[in-house]
Design a binder for these strands. Structure first.
Lengths: 229, 229
DNA sequence: AGGATGCTTCGATTAACATCGAACTATGAA
DNA sequence: TTCATAGTTCGATGTTAATCGAAGCATCCT
């Protein structure tokens, strides 16, 4: 018997179409109920229950009870791998239908677990780095002094961020842009801020993030700050 | 029918124990024959042939004929995902035997497809970055002027690197150290140099890279260069 | 040319897993 | 308390995929 990590277990969990559909649905970052996931996967709630038990045992998802509803969240490190697998499938042409307008919209701006991904997400990340607002290695980014000023002026609660146990800011490799976008607490907070400001909204039943015309303008204006060096 | 990337296909390819064993064997970076892969996976050559056909169709591996031997190489982007899956499995305790001395050795220094991973790999990467020998975003690192001098003095053929089509240097997230090590052409070239210098060697039938005592000293001396700022 | 080796293909077999109807439990509303 | 809804568990069924022996093809050695 071979020793070492059992990647076949992880692969087989992702490898069932029903489970894959549920995991992808959870990539939206929303908690979904067992019934909702059953519908997303096109199976009965009995079958969904069987699959959700497996995914829960493997710590791919976390359940949370609320009355008679069972909500499920995706584990963050699983989301990272799913993003990579989406990229691999796309690069190999392993798609289930032809690409369409939604495909372009997903490339432009989409939610990746809880943060902004796509070209807009990559643009944002590049901006934060080139402006020196965040610095350090991509897996352990820190906020600089000028970054603190910037985020405070943007009304991001940095104290809450520092109190949080999750990574403050880290890079997430974006399959569509082949560059990184910003994940972590800060990445999530920025996206929530764009929602709050009305710049962007998520589309129903999709990972697409849609900027309004004025929101897009404001977003680009934010990034179009004269360079400091 | 759901649309979008078919991650279930990729998951199911990795999800079979025999295929997973073969893929992990190919993580050593070596090309292996169908018979060798059958032995690695503990199956007959007929079964291996069936699986190798599937992996080839999906472009997870590339075949190469040499007389009556069929050699297979792992696709580089698949290697990146497998490294992530190894990390996920490790974090969940999904291992097939208890951790042992090999586990520590793998964490210390191992080959990841064709470059150095583990603590040593992370140390090397940190050194190159903090010394300013490479710079830029982790997915598109560039060699600085001082880096060019350094690598030339270390007898790395940079002209060959610039002629190569593969990424010159990029980061690869190391599951064991939770930080990145150096992948790409440069990462591979540096590891080959350590082999050539006799500082390190690969262990048979393992991904472990073993530094000799004097090699370890020289490697640490290389990294222990006074800081430039 | 004949034998050996590496590998592929085919067909039969077996095992594993996903599926859902029925029954049940837990929670919420009337 | 009763009914409705959400979700779980159980058992039976069907499907899918992995497996290997046998046969065959390609390549290499004597």
């Amino acid at each position: 018997m071979k020793e070492g990590p059992n990647i076949a277990l992880a692969g087989s969990l992702i490898g069932d179409p029903a489970r894959a559909n549920m995991l992808l649905a959870l990539m939206s970052g929303k908690a979904l109920t067992a019934s909702e996931l059953a519908r997303e996967a096109g199976i009965t709630v009995q079958t969904a229950s069987f699959h959700l038990a497996k995914l829960t045992d493997a710590e791919f998802i976390q359940p949370r009870k609320q009355g008679r509803h069972r909500y499920f969240n995706l584990a963050e490190d699983v989301a990272v791998i799913l993003e990579q697998l989406i990229g691999l499938a796309a690069s190999r042409g392993h798609t289930r239908t032809r690409t369409g307008p939604n495909d372009l919209a997903l490339r432009k701006a989409r939610i990746c677990y809880d943060h902004l991904a796509g070209e807009s997400g990559v643009q944002l990340f590049d901006f934060l780095k080139t402006q020196g607002l965040i610095c350090g290695p991509d897996e352990d980014l820190q906020i600089s002094n000028s970054g603190t000023d910037f985020f405070n002026s943007f009304e991001i609660d940095l104290d809450a961020m520092y109190r949080s146990k999750r990574p403050t800011c880290k890079a997430c490799l974006d399959w569509s842009a082949r560059r990184s976008h910003l994940a972590g607490w800060l990445g999530a907070a920025l996206l929530q801020k764009f929602f709050q400001l009305g710049w962007a909204r998520r589309l129903d039943n999709s990972r697409i993030i849609q900027f309004s015309p004025s929101g897009e303008q404001k977003f680009q204006a934010l990034l179009d700050v004269p360079k400091r060096n």
